[in-house]
């Protein structure tokens, strides 16, 4: 354990110290959907939560962010659709490039609303709106001002099918979203995110609040969804990352320790800290 920096020195010191310097990010051969470049993030109270993150996001692949609590993985994920903008005085530095247009997702000139319409998010706790199942899925279309009923019907069905929920709810579309079970609610939230055809779908520990059977269904869904959308998933569960992710990033104390193809990271990590984490010696 002596190899790991004592957390007390981290909180009192300025920049956190890692016992092992981060492994250089490897170039990946898959086409890219996004690229994180020298990304820093500061919370309103001045705390720097992310330090110089560099990371590629492969198009139509699943990228998993893993690491112990407080390592900054959720903070990084929420930067992709500018959720931090909801709370004033949070500050981004660096760039997150969306390809192929080569636009900077965190650039102040870009409207966060536009980004959120292109980069959707599914949360840890299922958070359906207090509306019917149908209206929950149609929400994204309605806020865009879509009024064509036929079109909305079509998209709702497609999204629900995409989220593997259609068969379970097709006769009860008018029922409240709260009436569903936890796993169904989470799939409803996925359908809601899919209905607007996002380019990237962010998952923030989507199965943390679910039972094993519902978890399995969501995991299958994620693998299925990557055919149509780029996925970034934060997970606490290393097995889950191993099962569903193509690429995995291990983060610690706000830094990216190692990024590689999932089987590479799990079988042959190049950084000793990654190995310690994966073998459960801390976390």
């Amino acid at each position: 354990m002596g190899m790991i920096t004592d957390s007390s020195t981290v909180s009192s010191g300025s920049a956190p110290q890692l016992a092992h310097p981060p492994t250089p990010v490897p170039r990946i051969s898959d086409p890219l959907k996004a690229q994180v470049e020298s990304f820093n993030f500061f919370y309103a109270n001045g705390f720097q939560a992310l330090h110089g993150i560099n990371m590629p996001i492969a198009d139509n692949q699943v990228t998993a962010l893993i690491g112990p609590s407080g390592c900054g993985k959720s903070t990084l994920l929420r930067s992709f659709n500018r959720m931090h903008d909801l709370y004033s005085k949070n500050r981004y530095e660096g760039r997150i490039i969306l390809l192929p247009e080569n636009i900077n997702l965190i650039g102040p000139e870009l409207d966060p609303i536009e980004i959120r319409m292109r980069v959707s998010m599914v949360f840890q706790k299922p958070n359906p709106f207090p509306k019917s199942i149908y209206e929950n899925v149609a929400f994204g279309l309605r806020v865009r001002g879509e009024t064509n009923k036929r079109y909305i019907d079509e998209r709702v069905e497609k999204a629900l099918r995409g989220a593997a929920l259609w068969d379970e709810v097709k006769d009860n579309l008018d029922k409240s979203g709260f009436a569903l079970s936890g796993g169904q609610q989470q799939r409803l939230c996925i359908a809601r995110a899919l209905a607007t055809d996002p380019e990237i779908l962010l998952f923030d520990e989507p199965t943390a609040a679910l039972d094993p059977i519902s978890t399995a269904k969501i995991e299958d869904l994620v693998v299925e969804l990557k055919k149509t959308v780029t996925i970034i998933i934060v997970t606490h569960n290393m097995q889950q990352a191993a099962r569903i992710a193509d690429y995995t990033a291990f983060m610690y104390l706000g830094q990216l320790v190692e990024f590689d193809q999932t089987n590479q990271i799990f079988t042959n990590p190049s950084n000793p800290m990654t190995e310690q984490y994966l073998t459960g010696r801390f976390g």
């Binding site: 959120r116 319409m117 929400f139 994204g140 865009r144 607007t196």
Partner: peptide
């Protein structure tokens, strides 16, 4: 109203 519900709406691009 729980913060998740609010964030859920903003994450969908709502104003």
């Amino acid at each position: 109203v729980p913060i998740q519900m609010r964030e859920g709406s903003y994450a969908m691009g709502a104003t």
